[in-house]
């Protein structure tokens, strides 16, 4: 009962924030914009035939056409809008949940209720997850339906990006709450989290460089350090890669082989990265990132439970 009340309250709080409606508007706008396009032989129709763009880009039929549409949806829409814009907006929207709870006058009443502090913390934490889950479901659900109904390409694997994007958000959100508890500052929580995200991505890129570029591997210590840090920190780039891999019918490497993408654009290095990331098992990517999140959440929970208000 208490837990449900907390989660419900977090959701009500999110409804009160303008950013909730901004995110909803973005979802509807993207789905609406997608609906205005249709891919026909030799042309792309915009706004139900108002404009028509002659192109032989989609003259190919069958599997390759599906792959190209999947590539547009997954790499263009999911990765950019959901994986970047959506996650940043979600972090901004939820970063204030804990600082507002910890405001003097609010926290006093909450802590005077017979609910353990860790439960209070976890209730708010999961409330934020629910907020993001709702948005991810709306966005992916709408774009999935448009892709299937309007373009005739059904991507059941794309639906997996709902939990995966919530996971990606949660890997970053744990940093946000860890910063918010001692600082009680929404701005600090957002900035540090975005900084951490850049750091995590940087570590993964650096490690990719080490593992695919032989000239880099002479720096043993740095290579080992990058591997160790990558092992510890959340694999944000990898989880996005997994989401994309599972969502589309074929990987971009396949598109290159099938002639869908200019081979000149697909460098040897990029292919190596593709192969390396494909080889990383999902349980390792998700599990080790969850372990990091669990440790950070436990520390945050401990700080939340121990401090005076």
């Amino acid at each position: 009962m208490q837990f449900l009340a907390l989660v419900l309250d977090s959701f009500r709080e999110s409804l009160d924030r303008k950013i909730f409606w901004v995110m909803l508007f973005i979802s509807l706008a993207v789905a609406g914009a997608m609906f205005c396009f249709s891919f026909e032989p030799n042309k792309v129709s915009i706004l139900f035939g108002t404009w028509e763009l002659e192109t032989d880009f989609l003259t190919v039929g069958g599997k390759l056409r599906e792959d190209i549409i999947a590539w547009i949806v997954v790499d263009g829409i999911m990765d950019t809008i959901l994986g970047w814009v959506g996650v940043i907006l979600a972090l901004i929207a939820t970063a204030g949940f804990l600082p507002s709870l910890m405001q003097r006058g609010t926290i006093d009443v909450m802590l005077s209720k017979p609910i353990a502090r860790w439960q209070l913390f976890l209730g708010k934490y999961l409330g934020s997850m629910a907020f993001v889950g709702v948005h991810a479901t709306i966005f992916v659900g709408l774009t999935f339906l448009v892709c299937g109904l309007r373009w005739g390409v059904w991507l059941p694997g794309y639906l997996l990006s709902i939990p995966l994007m919530v996971l990606l958000f949660s890997y970053l959100y744990c940093i946000s709450v860890l910063v918010a508890i001692p600082s009680r500052s929404t701005v600090a929580a957002v900035l540090v989290t975005l900084g951490a995200w850049v750091f995590f991505a940087g570590i993964q890129i650096t490690d990719d460089q080490f593992s695919t570029n032989e000239s880099w591997q002479q720096y043993d210590t740095a290579y080992t350090a990058s591997r160790v840090v990558r092992w510890i920190v959340p694999k944000t780039a990898d989880i996005t890669y997994k989401a994309k891999q599972w969502a589309r019918a074929a990987g971009s490497a396949d598109l290159v082989q099938q002639g869908g993408i200019d081979p000149d654009e697909a460098t040897e290095w990029a292919e190596k990265i593709e192969r390396k990331r494909s080889a990383i098992p999902a349980y390792y990517t998700i599990g080790s990132s969850l372990a990091f999140e669990a440790v950070v959440v436990l520390i945050a929970m401990w700080l939340f439970s121990r401090r005076d208000y």
């Binding site: 309250d9 009500r12 709080e13 009443v109």
Partner: peptide, 8 residues
């Protein structure tokens, strides 16, 4: 100086 959630 209590502060109740204004959205409720």
């Amino acid at each position: 100086s209590h502060r109740f959630p204004g959205y409720l």
